[in-house]
Design a protein around this nucleic acid. Structure first.
Lengths: 241, 241
DNA sequence: CCGACTATATTGTCCGACATCTTCGTTGAC
DNA sequence: GTCAACGAAGATGTCGGACAATATAGTCGG
């Protein structure tokens, strides 16, 4: 019974036309993050910190106790991590941090070359629009600021931010979204585990990319970005030899 | 209390090294699909069928009644759909089928041009390996078989399969994964709604792509693929003019 | 007609329970 | 002693209910 009769989603009632777009309207309450969100980020951060290593199994009950949340909440976080490709799920066997084999790393880098190249090209083309130049310059200089002190969690953040900004001012939302789904986190961590030399930050490359973007030289920006990724591929190949 | 002490995922016990890879071992039970999986697919299929239209809200309780599952299950499905970008979630406001604006469609097509181009290039390079030629030929001919009878759900499946095969024989797993995350479903449905002419299947394009791939001509395959996507972008532009 | 307040619908999160399934140690036959 | 079948324990899949938090709609007073 109950007045809960609703025709089960049959009526195409249009709603949520613009869920996020800022009408600068009243933000009734600040919606910081949901619990699954927190766990999601914690685990990614734990990846960099070494709290979690590829191959490690994630048992629901354990996570429940660790963060004091319910299984349902943990489950949501795990599903999102799986959707991102960071953990693998197999029915009735549970979750584990994904292990990349060398072929997968090469695949990721190959795709990354194309996507980062595109992002750099678009960014160079649109560097003059709006506040793009300021935004880019800021994240660029912040990244370069770590030249003297690598190996910190802040550097990781700065690098990620640099790439996010690159994609953002490029203006292609879909590219931005897809780039966030490429397994850069896993790749970095597992490359580092593979060989120490791979962890070296290539600031010269960053410089070349940044310069070309700021110069508005789309072709050069794309080439610099692609060369950067290709350099990592080469190092990977050498390590294997 | 309770012997449930487990150090909360601190021990890097390696497990699930190869969750899927076929050791051709005993498959104790056939794991068809989980309930969230079913709902996930149903909704995507419903998109094509018109059961669900962009902008339509998806209320959890409705879906639980429609499929006779619990809210938790529905929730999982919605989260996955959100992760794929098919629905948008906003806190306490619920889920709705994502509405693409024209800019987003253009973004998606721009990324698609690059990715499909890459897939076609790789596929042409590897057409000779293993059973690639057979696999590709089969899906190719199946697609062409619909030349005389467009506008069926089967055609949708055939086209998707063609692209999946293209990506698969290309051999880059990451590209394959990312391609599956591009919003082709939404794009097709909303393009169709925008203008009837956009629904026309471009079999000539498919032919050119297929021929080039089968000929092992990587350059030509990439160009044909990119041109196909670009043609759709042009039509989109014309409709807007 | 407009703005503040209240009611309701809906989502976010938790808890507990049970079925299903995997894993692994044990038993027993060969 | 080896190996397969059996069975117990651990973990996940799914369910149902419950309550809090919050957005939206409707109501009331001005």
């Amino acid at each position: 019974m109950s007045s809960r009769q609703r025709k089960a989603a049959a009526a195409p009632d249009r709603g949520l036309e613009s869920p996020l777009p800022g009408k600068a309207a009243r933000q009734t309450t600040v919606h910081p993050v949901s619990s699954p969100d927190l766990i999601f980020r914690e685990i990614i951060q734990g990846l960099y910190k070494g709290t979690y290593v590829p191959g490690q199994r994630l048992v629901e009950v354990d996570l429940t106790q660790k963060w004091g949340v319910s299984r349902g909440t943990v489950r949501e976080a795990l599903n999102r991590l799986a959707a991102e490709g960071i953990v693998v799920l197999s029915r009735h066997r549970g979750a584990a941090i994904r292990v990349l084999d060398v072929a997968e790393m090469q695949d990721i880098l190959a795709v990354l070359e194309m996507m980062i190249g595109m992002a750099a090209r678009l960014a160079a083309q649109r560097i003059g629009l709006g506040a793009n130049r300021e935004r880019f310059t800021e994240s660029f200089e912040m990244l370069l600021g770590f030249r003297s002190r690598p190996d910190s969690m802040d550097l990781v953040r700065a690098r990620n931010r640099f790439y996010r900004t690159l994609a953002a001012i490029g203006g292609n939302k879909e590219l931005e979204l897809l780039l966030s789904k490429v397994q850069v986190h896993l790749l970095r961590v597992q490359l580092r585990a593979l060989h120490e030399s791979l962890v070296v930050e290539r600031f010269d490359d960053y410089n070349r990319i940044g310069d070309a973007v700021l110069a508005g030289d789309a072709r050069r920006a794309e080439l610099a970005a692609r060369r950067h990724v290709r350099a990592m591929m080469d190092i990977l190949d050498k390590v294997l030899a």
